[in-house]
Structure formats: structure tokens, C-alpha cells
Design a binder for these strands. Structure first.
Length: 349
DNA sequence: TATCCGTGGAT
DNA sequence: TATCCAAGGAT
């Protein structure tokens, strides 16, 4: 094994984080591999998402659906509701698609090579490599944000991302060992997450402090360089929170494509820059406007949402959405933006 | 290659 | 308050 990988694995043996989707150190010592289903589920949840945010979702999902068969058999609406709040909802839609392919077309067994894995919905180059290495302990080079940062610093690479991606991937591949590839993959990411952090890296504790070129040059904290991002515009819109006299709420399922796709939400206007666009209420009622608006920031724009509300008689038929009784609807099923609107309404009542 | 797609915590 | 950032993928 190359000396870099050995240094890192030695560090990992003493510093590995205990995470719900990892096997215990004792089990790992006996060569026991983690359940590919749990590895896959955790990796999908961890895409662009912090460990702290994922923990409770992972526990909840594996409790509700212990196997890929259980998840494949789950209703779409329940899975989307359980994913609510975690963001990037295409992940949840692809999660179900993938579970059903694996359960119904592959006999419940995840493929063990990167190409076959990457052919599945929601699995890209990173996730395919991660599952290959972690679940099957087969050599594969994982390149996520952590690895990019670690490699940029180790080799003092100043080319900004994403242009540097290929070079960083090559550097990562050179260090990846044939032995213990699963532990190594998790070790690099643990290093990036705990020591080689974006700000204030703990270089003094790093197992690679000696070979690290950026540390020698004093450039570690400024790497990797990234091309500047565009400023976020602000969009405006209106949502309608209708409660029927029997307690039912008027909600609609958003289309699978686009923002918050597949999620439950309050009917409303489009969201546009400048003034809110023309639109009509989803049902005839005496609408009132809440004094505060719901503010939310998405990946590429800010949103300010006017929240209107009304109590609706039993005999009205909505032009959009459908009424859900309280036992059919949990506020926790809503994506965060819609949840903010609900909380504003509830706080005003 | 560039854009779209969420959210919450850290700074 | 504003910005950055996290175990990325799809188009």
C-alpha cells in the first residue's frame, strides 16, 4: 500500500466517526460489510447535505423501511412526506425509482460495480464509487467536495473548480489503495469533514501535514479556489391557505418536474421577479392577508411569499388542489417553504 | 459547460 | 444580515 494511504488509514483506525450507517469497529475488524441498502440510502441522503441533517432522516427511513423491498412497496406520498425538509426532492423521487428497479428487476441485490450502479436513477459518479467501495469493499475512487478540497491542498492546486475537477480526480485515484478501499473512502471524507475543513483547517492534527504542499505554502485555507457565484435575485408570489369548517386543508401535489417537485404545497401564484404575477385564488372565499410574509432562500433565488388565508364553507368546490382532513395531513409532510407559511398562519390564529 | 435543484448551520 | 458550504445528479 502506498505510504499516503497507510498514514490516512492509521489515522482513521483511531478517529473514525460513529455514524448510523457504518458498521461497528468490531464488526469491521471481522471483515463484516455494511448492508448495501443502508449504504445506498445514506449516500443519497448525504448528497449536498450535512451529516447532522441526515441522521434523524436515516433512522426514520430505516425504521419504516428496513429493506429495499419495504421501501419499494411504500406509497409515493408517504416517502415524499418523510423526505420533507431534507431538500433536493428529486433525490426522493429517484430514490423510489431506484428502489423499485433493485427490488423488482434485480432480485433485491444492488450491483457491485460502478457502471451498473451509475445506470440507476439518482446514482452519479460519486455515489456509484462510494457504494462500490463502502458496501462491497472494492477499489473505487470517491471524489466529493471533501476529496476535492483535500487533494487541492495536498498538491497545492490553484486552478478553480469546477475546471480543476479532472485533475483532482486523477490525484485522488493515485492515492486510492487496492486494500481496504471502503475504509479509505470513508477516511478521506472524514478527514475533509473533521480536519481539512473549508475554514480554519486543523493542519496540526492532520495525518498528511508533512506531505501537504498547501500547508507548506501557507495556502491551505484559501483552497480549493472556486469560480465566483452569481448573485441571487428575489422573486415574489402568493400562497392561499384555505381551511374548511370541518378542519380540512386545501393542498395540492406539485408536478414532478421543477422546484419542490412531487411535494405537497399550498396552491398559489407563480413566483416571479418584480411584482407578483396575475393569478386567481384556488377557491372562492373571503381572503385575508397575514401581516408577515414567508421568506425563504433557494439555491438560486430569494423568495418572499404573501400568505393569504380563509375559512371556507363546506359547499365550495376548489378550482385547484383538494381538501385533506387533519388525519390525512401532517405539517411535517410539507417542504420547508410551505411549512413556514403554515407556521405563520398558525402563529397568527 | 452551465443551470437547476433545498436546507440549516457556521461565520 | 449576507455569504458560504455540505458524502451531487440530471439535463
Amino acid at each position: 500500500m502506498n505510504p499516503r494511504a497507510k498514514e490516512l488509514l492509521d489515522w482513521y483506525d483511531h478517529n473514525a466517526r460513529r455514524l448510523p450507517w457504518r458498521t461497528s469497529p468490531q464488526a469491521r475488524a471481522t471483515g463484516e460489510l455494511p448492508d448495501p441498502y443502508r449504504v445506498w440510502l445514506s449516500e443519497i441522503m448525504l448528497q449536498q447535505t450535512t451529516v447532522a441533517a441526515v441522521r434523524s432522516y436515516f433512522e426514520r427511513f430505516t425504521s419504516l423501511w428496513p429493506t429495499v423491498y419495504d421501501l419499494a412497496a411504500a406509497p409515493d406520498a408517504q416517502v415524499m412526506g418523510e423526505w420533507a425538509g431534507l431538500g433536493y426532492y428529486a433525490r426522493a423521487r429517484n430514490l423510489l425509482k431506484c428502489a423499485r428497479v433493485v427490488a423488482f428487476d434485480m432480485g433485491g441485490a444492488f450491483p457491485c460495480d460502478p457502471d451498473a450502479l451509475q445506470a440507476l436513477p439518482g446514482i452519479g459518479p460519486y455515489t456509484a464509487a462510494a457504494i462500490t467501495a463502502i458496501a462491497f469493499d472494492r477499489p473505487a475512487t470517491v471524489v466529493d467536495g471533501n476529496v476535492e478540497r483535500v487533494m487541492a491542498r495536498l498538491h497545492d492546486i490553484h486552478t478553480p473548480l469546477p475546471a480543476a475537477k479532472l485533475e483532482l480526480t486523477e490525484k485522488a485515484a493515485i492515492v486510492t489503495p487496492q486494500d481496504r478501499p471502503g475504509d479509505y473512502a470513508q477516511a478521506v471524507m472524514d478527514l475533509g469533514a473533521t480536519l481539512c475543513t473549508p475554514k480554519n483547517p486543523a493542519c496540526g492534527l492532520c495525518p498528511w501535514r508533512v506531505p501537504c504542499r498547501a500547508r507548506a505554502e501557507g495556502t491551505a485555507a484559501s483552497l480549493p479556489k472556486k469560480t465566483p457565484k452569481k448573485p441571487k435575485p428575489t422573486r415574489f408570489g402568493t400562497v392561499y391557505l384555505a381551511r374548511r369548517v370541518d378542519g380540512a386543508f386545501l393542498l395540492e401535489r406539485r408536478p414532478d418536474c421543477g422546484l419542490l417537485g412531487g411535494m405537497l404545497g399550498w396552491p398559489g401564484s407563480d413566483w416571479t421577479e418584480g411584482e407578483a404575477p396575475d393569478h386567481s385564488a384556488p377557491i372562492r372565499a373571503e381572503w385575508k392577508t397575514l401581516p408577515a410574509e414567508a421568506r425563504h432562500t433557494f439555491t438560486h433565488f430569494h423568495l418572499r411569499l404573501i400568505v393569504r388565508h380563509a375559512l371556507v364553507p363546506m359547499d365550495r368546490t376548489p378550482e385547484r388542489g383538494s381538501f385533506l382532513m387533519p388525519e390525512e395531513f401532517r405539517p411535517s409532510d410539507l417542504p420547508t417553504l410551505m411549512r413556514k407559511a403554515f407556521d405563520l398562519w398558525q402563529g397568527a390564529a
